[in-house]
Amino acid sequence: SAVVMEEGSPGEVPVLVEPPGLEDVEAALGMDRRTDAYSRSSSVSSQEEKSLHAEELVGRGIPIERVVSSEGGRPSVDLSFQPSQPLSKSSSSPELQTLQDILGDPGDKADVGRLSPEVKARSQSGTLDGESAAWSASGEDSRGQPEGPLPSSSPRSPSGLRPRGYTISDSAPSRRGKRVERDALKSRATASNAEKVPGINPSFVFLQLYHSPFFGDESNKPILLPNESQSFERSVQLLDQIPSYDTHKIAVLYVGEGQSNSELAILSNEHGSYRYTEFLTGLGRLIELKDCQPDKVYLGGLDVCGEDGQFTYCWHDDIMQAVFHIATLMPTKDVDKHRCDKKRHLGNDFVSIVYNDSGEDFKLGTIKGQFNFVHVIVTPLDYECNLVSLQCRKDMEGLVDTSVAKIVSDRNLPFVARQMALHANMASQVHHSRSNPTDIYPSKWIARLRHIKRLRQRICEEAAYSNPSLPLVHPPSHSKAPAQTPAEPTPGYEVGQRKRLISSVEDFTEFV
């Protein structure tokens, strides 16, 4: 048969007729292969192709491409040299491709048809291009793949890379869960390890502090508590009631339409708007009261037996805890006409967050109470924005700035309102402590230090009264110190430094 060459192609190359033996071998191979691939376009007849790359030819070592076609129900084999250009295909004639002069020997084609199974398996396991790669995943090629499931790999992101949580363990979102698992493993320790309690022994800490320079003076030496005195035992138990972190309780009120001037209507609300609910979820963490331990979680007086509701929101960081007394989460009882059960919590909070959804101005004093010092007013606006402002009593104007209003988005509203309420509550605590000038409020841990110092002074006084020969370590507060001759004046800087060093040991009130 003659071949018409394309323009620009090399000279004529004689194409030899395939021997009958080659056709029989390739026909047997075509019957084993699956003929249901995917359909081509209507211009080209339905056909199945599979590209198999052999590394070497037997005796020649030339890479070839073998295409199996099922045109007219008769499979045909096409061998081509890759750099050459194939002729145009037609549905009426068999596929013809040019070969190099080196394939002119018909014996070479017979060798190609009689490829060993080793070469076929190696060509099938190679990388296939384009559409033949999808075909190689079918059941027909499963014989050339190794048996057994593939090893499982770690989760992959859409980009093909490992997620960040699997790369950096410290930033993994499941870090707290692993800590819980470690605690569970520790709890399952053997009885021999049960006595080993991690941490620092208080006796060891005391020993280090006792021999430090801070205890060089007799006034700073630790003293032993009497065991037989019940009054001192009660004082030590009272110390446990003062937490070592700051605590805040903040009221949250929802004002519906037409309720801006009605205290009873505001306290009777059992739910609010959708934006109000989203605002609550951002204030803190939802907790169930019956599962809380009052000595570990500050509840601000809420009952854990269901008297004040089942849930509330709280927030904490390293040095403070805040609980929100939310009116809509507290039960509304029919027998309580004046809502006294709610007001006994909300009316005693220094700061209230008022979500004013009424469309009218909310005035300070609508919720009557002796300790309502500051109101954080949240007014929802259009386009997911809110107006946040402050209202306070006249005696609080020096501590709280009420002249600045803020426009905040719904997303950042819980954070801004919480921070403003916490700052206002700190100012309210300082303002409330002014009624007792001898006990200015600095912080909870300073209050613990003052309680310890008062307890020490009482013990020293009782020891001096029981044994008059012992001198008083600290003179009583009601006694007057003996007159001392004025010492020589020293520079102001040295006096300030000495006073600062003494105050650092005794108390921190002056620095606050």
Rank of each mutant, 00 (worst) to 15 (best):
I353C: 01
H451G: 08
T277E: 08
V255A: 03
E263Q: 04
A417R: 00
G306T: 10
S403M: 05
N227E: 14
L470G: 15
H338Y: 12
C385Q: 10
T438A: 10
D217C: 11
D341F: 14
E257F: 09
S435N: 14
S262Q: 06
T402Y: 05
K394T: 13
E263G: 03
V255H: 01
Q241W: 07
Q484C: 14
E263T: 03
T281S: 15
T247D: 04
I353L: 04
G300W: 06
D361T: 08
C292M: 08
C340N: 15
I250Q: 01
Q259Y: 02
F232A: 09
P476H: 13
D240F: 03
E263C: 02
Y441F: 09
P294E: 12
Q293C: 14
S358K: 01
P226N: 15
E384W: 04
I367M: 13
N386Y: 01
P222T: 09
A421R: 00
H375E: 15
P489H: 11
M426F: 07
D317H: 02
E278I: 04
L455G: 10
S469P: 08
V473K: 15
R456S: 14
A427N: 03
L225M: 15
N436P: 05
V378D: 00
F362C: 03
D240W: 04
Q391A: 14
L267S: 04
A427L: 08
I446H: 07
V408H: 02
E461T: 12
E384T: 04
Y355M: 00
E462Q: 11
V236S: 07
D317N: 02
Q237D: 11
N386R: 00
V378G: 00
P437I: 07
V351N: 00
L239D: 11
N436A: 09
I242L: 13
D395K: 04
K221S: 15
E510V: 07
V505P: 15
T438K: 15
Q310F: 14
R344F: 10
P475G: 15
H345I: 14
A327S: 10
K368W: 10
G301D: 13
C292T: 09
L286I: 07
Q370W: 11
D395F: 14
N412P: 01
L399I: 12
S268Q: 12
K363F: 07
S358Q: 01
I367H: 03
V252H: 00
A424C: 13
G301E: 10
V354L: 03
Y383D: 07
I440T: 13
Q497S: 11
L501F: 13
L381A: 02
R234V: 06
E228P: 07
P475D: 15
P476C: 13
P437Y: 06
D291V: 06
K406C: 15
G258P: 02
S479Y: 07
L289K: 13
H431S: 06
S435C: 13
L364R: 14
R275M: 00
E278K: 11
T277S: 12
Q241V: 05
A464H: 08
T366L: 05
A322Q: 05
A464P: 11
Q429L: 08
Y313W: 05
N467Q: 13
A481C: 13
L472W: 12
R434T: 15
T402A: 07
Y493P: 14
S403A: 09
H478A: 15
V255D: 00
D410N: 05
S479C: 08
S469M: 15
H325G: 03
Q310Y: 15
S428N: 02
G284S: 05
I459H: 12
I367G: 04
N386I: 00
E278H: 06
Q230S: 07
S352T: 14
A327D: 03
K444N: 04
A265N: 05
V323H: 14
K343H: 09
F362H: 03
M396R: 03
T366G: 04
E360M: 09
L422C: 05
P414T: 03
T402C: 11
G347E: 15
L289F: 08
Y254R: 01
N261G: 10
Y441H: 15
H375L: 11
K343N: 07
N356S: 00
V304Q: 11
K499M: 12
R498A: 13
F415K: 03
R339L: 15
V351G: 00
T281R: 15
H325W: 04
A424E: 00
R454A: 15
L238I: 07
H338I: 07
L470Y: 14
V404R: 06
F415A: 03
L390R: 02
R418K: 06
I326R: 04
G398W: 09
L329R: 06
K296Y: 11
S273N: 03
M420D: 04
R448K: 07
H248I: 15
I326L: 02
H451W: 09
R448Y: 09
Q293W: 07
Q310C: 13
H474V: 14
L224S: 14
T312E: 09
P491Y: 09
K368F: 09
S358C: 03
Q259C: 03
G347Q: 15
C340H: 15
M426R: 01
V416P: 00
A463W: 09
L387T: 04
S273Y: 01
C385G: 06
K249L: 07
R418Y: 03
D336I: 06
V495R: 14
D401W: 02
L280D: 01
A481L: 09
Y254I: 00
Y254G: 01
G301A: 12
V473S: 08
Y493H: 14
